[in-house]
């Protein structure tokens, strides 16, 4: 209390008023120019983001109609429901394959591998490489291996396996970060109480890291929903709801590509774009919330 009384503007130390900032800017023209550039580019960037979102939502949401959610796709109604259901199937199946592999890999990297292990650096390197490969290359690879060499034709299964490889690095990396952020105290406490390594990992470490891992999975869902280049030549653009893994099944993004490529309906393309955008929006919000919860938990 006393200290505060002695220094009158305690709260404003190290803070500058707008007027003093302005004076220093006017004195140095270079600073003024730089300041303007920074603000200008921030305004441009923010403006573009806002414009894209607003444009697609404003143009797309009104073009949504009940017809677009009928059970069967025809060139008249351009129904997106089959594509939507195919997308959900694709998400579920891809995650079933990629999530356990990704989480187990991360567990090995964080909990079991010794420091300076050659294999670990190799795994890190390949994971990084994998996450840098563009989706068209995955699509080509999936086409060569699954569609041609295995003779599966354009099928749901080919798409699922391609996507599983594609989202694997994302899941490994986010899980790794989540596991690393669990304090060692937790592990030591668990060991101290007599738990073994495996029990510690599954009962103590994984639950504490759960929000972080979930955030990674949600991001992976986002990538699957948005993916089109890797799927056009693996799962194809079938417009019916897939009933077996060997059916060709177009996801929402591929469906949108098809709408534009064949010029079927611009209104429908707007509508699908809006639906995709809303999807991404929701996914970002959920993963943001989960990340924040993870940060709060491990602080």
């Amino acid at each position: 209390m006393k200290v505060r009384a002695q220094i009158p503007n305690y709260a404003t130390i190290n803070k500058r008023t707008l007027a003093s900032r302005w004076r220093s800017l006017v004195k140095s023209p270079l600073s003024l120019i730089l300041f303007c550039l920074v603000v200008l580019s921030a305004v441009i960037a923010a403006g573009m983001i806002l414009f894209i979102i607003a444009y697609i939502l404003v143009m797309g949401l009104p073009s949504l109609s009940l017809e677009m959610f009928s059970w069967k796709f025809t060139t008249e109604n351009c129904s997106m429901l089959p594509a939507l259901i195919n997308t959900l199937i694709m998400i579920a199946a891809t995650l079933i394959i990629a999530v356990p592999i990704g989480i187990f890999s991360a567990i090995y990297l964080v909990e079991y591998a010794k420091k300076g292990n050659r294999l670990v650096s190799l795994i890190r390197l390949t994971t990084e490489t994998l996450s840098g490969i563009p989706s068209i290359i995955f699509g080509l690879f999936g086409n060569i291996l699954f569609v041609e060499a295995f003779g599966w034709r354009y099928s749901l299964l080919a798409g699922i396996l391609t996507l599983a490889i594609m989202v694997l690095p994302l899941i490994i990396r986010t899980t790794e970060e989540a596991l690393l952020s669990v304090p060692d105290l937790y592990r030591e406490g668990s060991f101290g109480l007599g738990a073994g390594k495996l029990r510690t990992v599954f009962r103590i470490v994984l639950p504490s890291a759960a929000p972080g891992i979930l955030a990674g999975i949600v991001l992976a869902i986002g990538r699957i929903v948005g993916e089109s280049a890797a799927l056009v030549f693996t799962s194809g653009s079938g417009t019916r709801i897939a009933t077996s893994p060997m059916d060709s099944a177009g996801t929402l993004s591929v469906f949108m590509y098809m709408l534009m490529d064949e010029g079927l309906s611009m209104d429908a393309a707007y509508a699908v774009a809006a639906v995709l955008l809303v999807f991404v929006f929701v996914i970002n919000i959920i993963s943001g919330l989960l990340t924040r919860r993870m940060e709060k938990k491990t602080r």
């Binding site: 983001i49 894209i52 991001l219 929903v225 948005g226 534009m260 774009a273 995709l276 943001g288």
Partner: peptide
């Protein structure tokens, strides 16, 4: 979050835009 959202928008939507 807006910048992060920009990263999440599918490329097909960008192309359409």
């Amino acid at each position: 979050p807006a910048v992060e959202l920009l990263a999440g928008i599918p490329s097909i939507v960008y192309g359409f835009f």
